[in-house]
Nucleic acid binder design. Sequence first.
DNA 1: AGACTTCTTCACAGCTTATTCAAGATAATA
DNA 2: TATTATCTTGAATAAGCTGTGAAGAAGTCT
Lengths: 222, 222
Amino acid sequence: MANILIVEDEENMRNIIAAYMKKSGHICYTAEDGVDALMLLKSNPVDLMILDIMIPHIDGFSVCKVAREMSSMPIIMLTARAEESDKLKGYECGADDYTTKPFSPKVLLAKVNALLRRSSFEPREVLSAGKISLTPSSHKVFVDGEEITLTHKEYELLYFFMMNPGRVFTREQLLDRIWGYDFEGISRTVDTHIKTLRHKLNGEGKHIVTLIRSGYKFEVKV
Amino acid sequence: MANILIVEDEENMRNIIAAYMKKSGHICYTAEDGVDALMLLKSNPVDLMILDIMIPHIDGFSVCKVAREMSSMPIIMLTARAEESDKLKGYECGADDYTTKPFSPKVLLAKVNALLRRSSFEPREVLSAGKISLTPSSHKVFVDGEEITLTHKEYELLYFFMMNPGRVFTREQLLDRIWGYDFEGISRTVDTHIKTLRHKLNGEGKHIVTLIRSGYKFEVKV
DNA sequence: AGACTTCTTCACAGCTTATTCAAGATAATA
DNA sequence: TATTATCTTGAATAAGCTGTGAAGAAGTCT
């Protein structure tokens, strides 16, 4: 269901965890050190990470911090040490859970599923609103049954909106989260993309609502 | 920041947990048995619950299940038993974490904050007073179930009032905090916005109370 | 390199929202 | 009750924001 990254240097442990996750329908990526982990994080869509602290090259805390900057995925820390200061450090780095070895793989799986539920991760195959439907896996968008072609930015914008329905975003937030800039000053770029997106969505463009001085939001119902 | 319900029958333990949470800025409600807990849940806005399993009248698992049906708040289970079957049962009931006693209050606090962060808890999901309710994430305002449309300034004004109920603000303070000016001299700008806001709030405009010579305040109850 | 697509910038019309002002209403004061 | 200070209100005016089309810049693909 979800893409899970397992970062653990002991091969045996790694395999056991992966086996449990796979059995429950998740897709697993594995890394045996911090560098591997970061590379995988960059190039793959990871929904949750299980992260051992004592790993070669770059330790788990650092990996956790970097991961936190790029995504809000749930992170479960694993470690042999049960020291309080370590746990606190883990939570400070942005971890969601801190599990000490030895642990039961069943309980780990239960935690994983609880966190996925909590992180509003849904294995949604298709997002829809009104007559719009969007399939993330194939990047296809249909309006009233007709496929429409969007450019990459337009797709990302629509996808972002549909993943966060009802929420208001300022132009700056959109530039930040979709474009990835720290934009200084004013830009009409967002407006222009909204315009073309609305146009391509035809009548369904009404789902994208302007809030003067606040930004835009996507409303599922009219 | 968040409203936390602590359900624990041992008075000492309850007080320690509450003290830690309060120190971190959270508002605490406490219950010493399952019935208490459910009553509090019904009548108060709870953002997160810390729930002991072994409590009088109704056990923690049952409280957890009921709570899950009414809200998606994070739930942390506490217990003296570290049995795997118990943990699994906890997660099955919809708990987000299962902590065994004895535990460090610091770590518990870190978990609480991690879960609040994770649950995309925002400084209050919905603010309400009388028949007014306001959702910050979508900038929506309802009066008696009907959505009303506010301009940006009106929204900001109402939001500010509802975030600071009962407090009196002078016009200068409002200009300063909402408009961002250092206003010199007199301005009727605030008055005018108050007027239209009251008007749009219809009968509920009465929540905005004028204090002659002092300014305005927002009263939650009539 | 050339042709095409996509992205960004810009200027301005059209419209919404904010502010000012003056007069009427209300409350405090003596 | 008369007087004065303070609010409320409505209308007029000013300010600010967004939508749009067109054109230039940056990427992509062959």
